[in-house]
Simulated scan of single mutants.
Amino acid sequence: MHPHHLHAHTTAHTLDTARRRLARTIATRRQVVDQPDGLRSSTLGRRSSLGGHGDPVGTIALLGTREHDPLADLAQFVGDRLAAIADQLTPPSPIDPMTRLLPLLPRLQPRAANVAARCFRMLTGRIDAALPAPPRLTAWPGDCPGCGVRLLQLHDAGPRDHWTVTCGAGCTCTGDGCPCQMPIRAQGVTHIWLRTTLTATTDRKAA
Score class of each variant (00 low, 15 high):
H5D: 04
A8R: 01
T10S: 15
H13M: 09
T14A: 15
D16Q: 10
R24E: 14
T25M: 04
T25Q: 13
R30C: 05
Q31D: 14
V33R: 14
D37T: 14
L39C: 05
T43Q: 11
G45V: 00
G45C: 06
R46W: 04
S49R: 08
L50Q: 10
T59V: 11
A61P: 00
A61C: 05
A61R: 07
L62S: 12
L63I: 01
G64D: 14
T65M: 03
T65W: 05
R66N: 12
R66I: 11
E67W: 01
E67G: 14
A72Y: 00
V78E: 04
V78H: 06
R81G: 11
R81A: 14
L82R: 01
A84M: 06
A84H: 10
A84I: 02
I85W: 12
A86Y: 03
D87N: 14
Q88R: 15
T90L: 15
P91F: 04
S93I: 00
P94G: 13
I95N: 07
P97L: 12
M98G: 13
T99L: 15
R100N: 08
L101F: 07
L101C: 08
L101V: 03
L102G: 06
P103W: 07
P103M: 10
P103Q: 09
L104M: 15
R107S: 14
Q109M: 07
A113L: 02
R121F: 03
M122N: 01
T124F: 02
G125M: 05
I127K: 03
A129V: 00
A130G: 08
A130E: 01
L131P: 11
A133N: 11
L137V: 05
L137S: 12
W140R: 11
G142V: 02
R150I: 00
R150C: 09
D156T: 13
T164S: 15
T164C: 13
V165F: 04
C167M: 10
G168R: 03
A169C: 05
A169N: 14
T174Y: 01
P179N: 08
P179L: 09
C180A: 10
Q181P: 00
P183L: 13
V189H: 06
V189W: 01
T190W: 02
T190D: 08
T190L: 10
T197S: 15
L198V: 06
T199W: 05
R204P: 03
